[in-house]
């Protein structure tokens, strides 16, 4: 299938990407071309093939559910664009009630 501008706009919004009209004009044909190209997989009958998600013959292991670090609040916050009183801060999103 091809991806028209509206589909790309919707996908971009799902992916939290702001796109301009000019970008939509550029991305829509590119993404359509890629989709049409990958659709050649339709030539293959895969009805009896199990999907593959783990490529190696080794089952992933789980570690013990034990706390093995801590007291690293400042290291965690060191890269924060904005931090205050030990918290990440974000723009205010709750409007004050008028009444």
């Amino acid at each position: 299938m091809s991806m028209d501008k509206e589909t790309v706009r919707k996908v971009a919004s799902l992916a939290r990407l702001r796109v301009t009209e000019e970008e939509l004009d550029k991305f829509a044909p590119q993404l359509s071309g890629i989709l049409e190209w990958i659709e050649q997989l339709g030539e293959l009958d895969t009805s009896n093939v199990e999907p593959l998600s783990n490529v190696v013959d080794i089952a992933p292991v789980s570690r013990q559910d034990e706390i093995n670090d801590g007291n690293i609040q400042s290291a965690i916050l060191a890269n924060a664009p904005e931090a205050q009183s030990g918290y990440f801060t974000v723009p205010k999103i709750i409007e004050q009630a008028d009444n």
């Binding site: 799902l14 590119q30 997989l41 339709g42 593959l52």
Partner: peptide, 30 residues
């Protein structure tokens, strides 16, 4: 990066997941 993010968001989205993502996982096994 934006192209790949959008392509991946599309192939994982409701209604297309089986036709694209799961299909590709089956081809991966072949």
């Amino acid at each position: 990066t934006k192209r790949r993010i959008m392509l991946g968001t599309f192939t994982l989205s409701a209604g297309y997941y089986d036709a694209y993502y799961v299909k590709a996982q089956r081809v991966r096994r072949l």
